[in-house]
Amino acid sequence: MASQGTKRSYEQMETDGERQNATEIRASVGKMIGGIGRFYIQMCTELKLSDYEGRLIQNSLTIERMVLSAFDERRNKYLEEHPSAGKDPKKTGGPIYRRVNGKWMRELILYDKEEIRRIWRQANNGDDATAGLTHMMIWHSNLNDATYQRTRALVRTGMDPRMCSLMQGSTLPRRSGAAGAAVKGVGTMVMELVRMIKRGINDRNFWRGENGRKTRIAYERMCNILKGKFQTAAQKAMMDQVRESRNPGNAEFEDLTFLARSALILRGSVAHKSCLPACVYGPAVASGYDFEREGYSLVGIDPFRLLQNSQVYSLIRPNENPAHKSQLVWMACHSAAFEDLRVLSFIKGTKVLPRGKLSTRGVQIASNENMETMESSTLELRSRYWAIRTRSGGNTNQQRASAGQISIQPTFSVQRNLPFDRTTIMAAFNGNTEGRTSDMRTEIIRMMESARPEDVSFQGRGVFELSDEKAASPIVPSFDMSNEGSYFFGDNAEEYDN
């Protein structure tokens, strides 16, 4: 783990906690998980779902989305002020799938948001429990990260689609708070800032007046979040320049895209947490497990152990491969979309394939898809080993990566060399080191050039047997250095459309 220093740990961010010791953190995270579980059980009762239907990941996603929508204050306010045809701002819903006479049927349900809020609060001892809501947002974000390569979004903001390893959390809503900021990748933060800068260039009043003052505060806050992700002084200094700019424009845009590229080699610290679907927490609570009393951590053995003992089902389209669908969801559960496939294969105990080789589309089923041909199958979400999630980018030494994705962002704290394609990355730096950030740029390029592919990161860190909950005997895996390590390699994943 990167030293926490003055930073709060993510469990504290996750639970809005002030400084807590490890036991208190485990208890408050457990409380959050228990609340999600209780809410899910109650919703299944309301909807009269069978046990099997309640364990269907598509039903879980609909129920999670309903509660997130019920608590989305800004959108609710907007919907009330701008009524649109056929949208009731006070209601929320989605597809629920039921097994009827041996076939899967889709039923569109509609609930009062007020009623959903009441059920959620009741499951969370009367609190709004925003930490639990954020947790579900991060699960949705991790699922998107594993399912889609955001080529269009990258290109629109002047970045290269091969930089997708920097895009963790790119679909997280803005209201996801400190826990959300911690899991956002460098590219995601750059993209958010670039969008602001572009608006400022096109709209003279963007930075002016009372609204402009708020915009400015948001801009500086985002700059500080991004600065905190960088691990070298030169990158941090460049972020200070971007933040202090009187009138952010093209120079800042250039600096930010430069920094994003540099992060492929001088990786930023991005938190990883295993956020599971509500249909995993519900049955665990129903079986009598007391998360608050037992304590829970999002970055240790607990999620692995929970998945070892969970039964989750998914709808499967006619030509999809259930094992591939399982891999997709497994990666999402562990926030591992940008991790090295060699490491993932070792931990999972079966070969993890790149996205383009998977015969599976996303987990969600569109409303126009034919239910007649839908089957369902068990998702295999178990693992051979477990490993500690990392909050750091690993040290800054790398190795060759593949054509589709030119770097990785480690999820697990496991000893290995970190793949990246130096030639491709360095070719993108057209040696432009003039301007006010020239000395920093020169320094950053120097550090990137001296990074050695064969150097090892996370020295001495290994994986653990599932029986080793105290992480007492690390097993340090050895990897084939020459092997392909990137998930979005030469990829044809669908595009994420909101």
Rank of each mutant, 00 (worst) to 15 (best):
M163R: 00
G249S: 03
M222Y: 09
K91V: 00
N492P: 02
S383A: 06
M66L: 14
N397Q: 13
Q327T: 05
L56T: 07
M331A: 07
L341C: 11
L298N: 06
L226T: 14
E81I: 14
K357E: 05
L143E: 11
Q58S: 00
W330I: 07
S245P: 09
G185M: 06
G282W: 14
I301P: 09
A218L: 03
M13T: 15
A284W: 04
R156T: 05
Y496C: 14
Q311Y: 12
N498M: 13
Y219F: 12
A286C: 12
S438F: 05
R216Q: 13
I57F: 11
G93K: 06
V352I: 13
N76R: 01
K77N: 12
A178S: 15
K48Y: 02
Y296N: 14
A427L: 13
K351T: 13
H135T: 12
T215D: 01
A451E: 12
A323W: 05
R384Q: 03
S376A: 13
T157Y: 01
P477H: 10
Q4L: 13
S262A: 13
S28P: 06
D497A: 06
G356K: 01
T215R: 09
F230D: 03
A181I: 02
L358H: 10
Q241G: 01
E369L: 05
E495Q: 14
R305M: 11
K470D: 08
N124I: 09
E434S: 15
P173V: 11
S297I: 07
N142A: 06
L381N: 12
A146P: 07
G209Q: 03
A278Y: 02
L353N: 06
E494K: 10
Y148A: 01
R384V: 12
N492W: 04
R317W: 05
T423R: 10
R199S: 12
N370P: 00
I445M: 10
D302E: 14
K227N: 11
P474C: 06
L353D: 00
N211E: 02
S287C: 11
G132K: 03
F304K: 00
W139V: 08
N247W: 04
F488A: 03
G288K: 10
A179M: 06
A403F: 06
E46A: 05
G460T: 06
F253A: 14
G394N: 11
